[in-house]
Design a binder for these strands. Sequence first.
RNA 1: GGUGACGUGACCGAGUGGCUAGGUAGAGGUCUGCAAAACCUCCUACAGCGGUUCGAAUCCGCUCGUCACCUCCA
Length: 515
Amino acid sequence: MQHPLSLYNTLTRQKAPFEPLNAPFVGVYLCGPTVYNEAHVGNARGPVVFDVLTRYLRFLGYTVRYVRNITDVGHLEGDADEGEDKIGKIARARKVEPMEVAEGYTNLYQSHVEALGCLPPDITPRASGHIIEQIQMIEEIIRNGFAYEVNGSVYFDVPAYNAAGRGYGKLSNRVVEELLAGSRDNLAGQEEKRSPLDFALWKRADERHIMRWPSPWSDGFPGWHLECSAMSRKYLGDEFDIHGGGLDLMFPHHECEIAQSQACNHPTNEARVWMHNNMITVNGQKMSKSVGNFITISQLFEGTNTTLAQAYSPMTARFFLLQAHYRSTVDITDEGLQAARKGYRKLMNGLRLLDKLNEASLSSEVIKARTVQPMTEGQAPDTTKGDAELRKLVADCFAGLNDDLNTAKAIASLFNLLRKLNGFFANLTTLATVSAAALQEATEAYRTLVTDILGLVDEPRAKAEDLLRLTLEFYQEAKVTKAYDKVDQIRAALKEQGIVVKDTKAGIDWAYSED
RNA sequence: GGUGACGUGACCGAGUGGCUAGGUAGAGGUCUGCAAAACCUCCUACAGCGGUUCGAAUCCGCUCGUCACCUCCA
């Protein structure tokens, strides 16, 4: 399976050709959302980027297993907090089951990313559904000497692990000594830890804590980073191909994940390739829950956030995100979104030309024009030049994707291809400059790139009922003028759409055909 | 303080040591009953100052500015 897809690996800080561990299988894990509140636009970037990645990997012929987890347990309010889970806290406030809170936000999240055109992952594991796996992992880590128990809680022993030469900090370029020097060791509730760098694998739950499970150490709950190590291992193996997430997860989350996985005596980096998407900014500042400058996905779709002047459709948002490279920050503004909306629609309009172009390309006029091309001396009267140009335009699109999934570059090239196709359409006889086969290839590539790989689908703007009403107005007009051939024509056309026109005393109405 | 990233034209946003990014907006034109779409042409760039080089927006240094991670965050 030879292809030139290169990906930037955070571990090595460089791009390298992507080579699966066990081709044609590819394992991909993306850190999903924490479901204790509604996701914002920033949370959508990873799913969209990884949706394109997995779509493209499949296009390249790989058999992909794409895992995107739901973290519904294990995230504390903060270090100082004696362990009340965020979900548990909300559940207590609303007087509902924690699982209701998690389920509600999970469903909302999934409907949002689906609207954004993201295909469902192959597996969507929940942290709460993998407590046993996490406990087993902790036992393994303890057995290997990289964790210790204190008062029913278990902590990962970062200094011990690092002393064993495992390289804590290798992903994020941290040096343990520097981390220690810069750490804030004045936080309350940290007394149990031997080192400020240690992190919880298991926390004993206090009486108030609702979400709790039995374990060999205490009734409690798993630590913040463990779920991803345990679940990726369960479904993708000790080592797999690609692990992704937001740049802000690199440290400490992903660093801890690698440490946990390695501490289970698997001397790998958990994943071969670590990919990190950059942040979405608002006025140049990272969109984040804690800063409060976030726009939720619902607000974007409905236009209910004051930062933005209006609503933007899911496909506009998807296009907007893909018009930037995933490792760049992208600033969200009305102007940017409006430009994206127009660009997106331009791409959709192109989609509608493809069949017409191929049809025209096979028309007798064009075929004739091809054969009677004036023959210049020494030049074959063929379409070689035009075909090569067309193929170059297509190749540029794929070159963009191959270059670390540079969708910005790919889309730019796609517009170049579209300009060519639009040019053909403006003057159909120019189709004679390319062969029917090359045109077919190009139009297929366009469709594949836009819909299958970038996942941009046509978002109908017109409402069917409004269009129907319009048609019935013409119908009525035809009746008044007794243009019965027109009347019959409209009736027949609507019948084909499963609509019957009803002339009632009260006026013209319609109904679904019951045939 | 430590680590890292960035500063591109009206806006968004790619990129490479010498060859058009692209989208949106703006100007002119073709087309057109009007309009739209489309096509053609044009327009405003690479923060500043030095250095390397035949040549740098692209490499190096400094300055200024912005941001991110080091605490939950995609």
